[in-house]
Design a protein around this nucleic acid. Structure first.
Length: 417
RNA sequence: CGGGCCGUAGUAUACCGGUAGUACGUACGAUUCGGGUUCGUAUGGACCGGGUUCGAUUCCCGGCGGCCCGACCA
C-alpha cells in the first residue's frame, strides 16, 4: 500500500490522556483511535495486525479440532436465568437494555449459556462427542474502570473456545492439548520467551485454572515464577498447599508482574447440568457433558506485544504479526529517477506477493525514518540516489538496525526467507 | 465503588480576575534534501450550565468527560 494513500498519519505527541505505552504508541502510529474510555477503533494499520494475530489463533485452534462459528452479541435473558447468571450479583459487568416492544436483553460478556443451549440441539449420543467450538466475538463488559490502553476495555474481541467431552479424562486430554496450542500461539506472535503457564484460581467454576502470563511491568497481575521449570503461580493461589502440589519451593520463585494473555479452565458440568446438555452413553444411560472454556483476546495480545517489544523509537512488530512484510522507503529529494526506481521496486514486490507499505510521500528522509521506526515494520528497504549509485537497494531490520546494500533479485529472496 | 488529579487551537503545552502565548500540524511562498531543514505569511482555541464580580478561560457549585491508585475482574 502506498503510504500517501493511507488516511491515517503519525503524530509526534501522544495524547495526554493516555499513559499506557501500548496506547501511546498505537495512537501515535495511527493503529487505533480512542472513541471513549475503554473503547477503541482499529484503523487500517491496526486492523492488519489484529487480523494477523486472529489468523494465528485460528490456525492453532483448527489444528486441535476447533470448529469456528459466530454466536450473537445480543443475549436473551432466558438461558442466563437458568444458570443464575442474569443477576447483576453474579455478573456485575452486564450491559443490559430493553427491547422497544418490551423485554430485556443483554450484550454478551461471555457465551457459555447460549452455546451450551445451542449444543443441546445437536448433542444426543456419545457418538456426537467430543466437540470443540470456538468464535471470535465482541464481548461487552461494563468494567468499573477501563485502563491500560487496549488491555482492559469495555468492548473487545475474544477468541473463546468451548470443549464438550464425555468424561473428565477426555476433557483433560483436550485441556492439555489446548494449553500446548496456546504456547504455540504466544511463540508465533513473538512472546514465547516471556510467556508462562500459570497456576491460577478457578473462580466460581472449579478449584483451579491455568492462565498464560507474559512478563511485563505493565501487567496487572503478580505471579511467582519458576524460571527453571518455566511455570508460575498466580499470587491469588500462592499457598503452601499449591506449591507442594506443583512440587516447587518458595526459594526457587521470583515475584514478577505479568499480563494475562490467555486463560483456560474447567467448567465441569455446571452449565450442561443447568441447561440440560446431556448424552446417552454406550449403555443407554444419560450423562452430563463435561465442559471447558478457553479464551484469548487478540486485542490485548496486540497491546502486550507493543508493551513488551517496543523501544524508545517506537513499535517493533514480530514478523508474523507485522501490518506489512516490508516498509519500502524512497528518498528522492525530488529526483525523478529515484521515484521511478522505487515505483518499479514496489511493483516488483507486489508481483512477488510481498505485502509492502511504500512510503512514497514527498517528505524528507528524517521524517520517513522516524515514522518507519514508530510504525515498526520489521524489514525496511531504502531506495535513494546513494543506493542507485551502488547498484542495489538498502535492506535493514527494525530491530538490529544493521544495513546492507543488496541487489534486487537478492532482496526478494531475503524478504521471503 | 472508595480516594486523588485534570479538562485551553487538530496534537502537546504556557500565562492570566481585564487584548489567551508558544511548539508541532495544516495552507501558501522560498530554502533544503540519508535521521522530524531553515525562514516568512496565514489558519485555528478556553467541555457544558449556573453563581460571585463592573468584568470569569481564571474563583465557587453542579453536570459531562478523561486519567491515576485501590477494590473488583470468565
Amino acid at each position: 500500500m502506498r503510504q500517501s494513500q493511507l488516511f491515517t498519519k503519525t503524530r509526534k505527541h501522544a495524547p495526554k490522556d493516555e499513559v499506557a505505552k501500548n496506547a501511546q504508541l498505537l495512537i501515535r502510529g495511527g493503529f487505533i483511535h480512542k472513541e471513549m474510555a475503554g473503547v477503541y477503533s482499529y484503523l487500517p494499520l491496526g486492523l492488519r495486525v489484529f487480523k494477523r494475530i486472529e489468523q494465528i489463533i485460528r490456525e492453532e485452534m483448527n489444528a486441535i479440532g476447533g470448529q469456528e462459528m459466530t454466536l450473537t452479541a445480543l443475549q436473551s435473558p432466558a438461558a442466563w436465568k437458568k444458570t443464575g447468571r442474569w443477576d447483576d450479583a453474579a455478573i456485575d459487568v452486564w450491559f443490559k437494555t430493553e427491547l422497544k416492544g418490551g423485554g430485556e436483553l443483554g450484550l454478551g460478556t461471555t457465551h457459555e449459556e447460549p452455546l451450551t443451549e445451542l449444543m443441546t440441539e445437536y448433542v444426543e449420543s456419545y457418538k456426537d462427542l467430543p466437540k470443540y467450538v470456538y468464535q471470535f466475538q465482541t464481548k461487552f463488559r461494563n468494567e468499573m474502570r477501563a485502563k491500560s490502553g487496549i488491555m482492559r476495555t469495555r468492548e473487545f474481541v475474544m477468541k473463546d473456545l468451548y470443549s464438550f467431552s464425555r468424561s473428565e479424562e477426555e476433557f483433560r486430554e483436550f485441556y492439555e492439548k489446548c494449553a500446548a496450542a496456546y504456547m504455540k500461539i504466544f511463540k508465533r506472535v513473538g512472546l514465547g520467551e516471556q510467556t508462562f503457564r500459570t497456576f491460577a484460581s478457578g473462580g466460581s467454576f472449579s478449584k483451579f485454572s491455568d492462565e498464560f502470563q507474559t512478563l511485563s511491568d505493565a501487567g496487572e497481575d503478580t505471579i511467582h515464577l519458576h524460571r527453571g521449570k518455566g511455570i508460575a503461580v498466580n499470587k491469588e493461589v500462592y499457598t503452601d498447599e499449591v506449591l507442594a502440589e506443583l512440587g516447587i519451593e518458595k526459594s526457587e520463585l521470583e515475584e514478577v508482574k505479568a499480563i494475562e494473555v490467555g486463560n483456560i479452565f474447567p467448567l465441569g458440568t455446571r452449565f450442561s447440568d443447568a441447561l440440560g446438555l446431556k448424552f446417552k452413553d454406550e449403555k443407554g444411560n444419560e450423562q452430563s457433558v463435561v465442559m471447558g472454556c478457553y479464551g484469548i483476546g487478540p486485542g490485548r495480545l496486540m497491546g502486550t506485544i507493543v508493551e513488551v517489544l517496543s523501544d524508545e523509537k517506537g513499535i517493533v512488530w514480530p514478523k508474523e504479526v507485522a501490518p506489512f512484510r516490508v516498509h519500502l522507503i524512497s528518498i528522492s529529494g525530488g529526483n525523478a529517477d529515484v521515484v521511478a526506481e522505487a515505483d518499479r521496486l514496489y511493483e516488483l514486490l507486489n508481483e512477488n506477493g510481498v505485502e509492502a507499505l511504500y512510503d512514497d510521500r514527498e517528505s524528507r528522509a528524517g521524517e520517513k525514518f522516524a515514522d518507519a521506526d514508530l510504525i515498526g515494520i520489521p524489514m525496511r528497504i531504502v531506495v535513494s540516489e546513494k543506493t542507485m549509485a551502488e547498484g542495489g537497494v538498502e535492506l535493514s531490520g527494525r530491530h538490529n538496525g544493521g544495513t546492507a546494500i543488496v541487489s534486487e533479485d537478492e532482496v526478494i529472496k531475503r524478504i521471503r526467507a
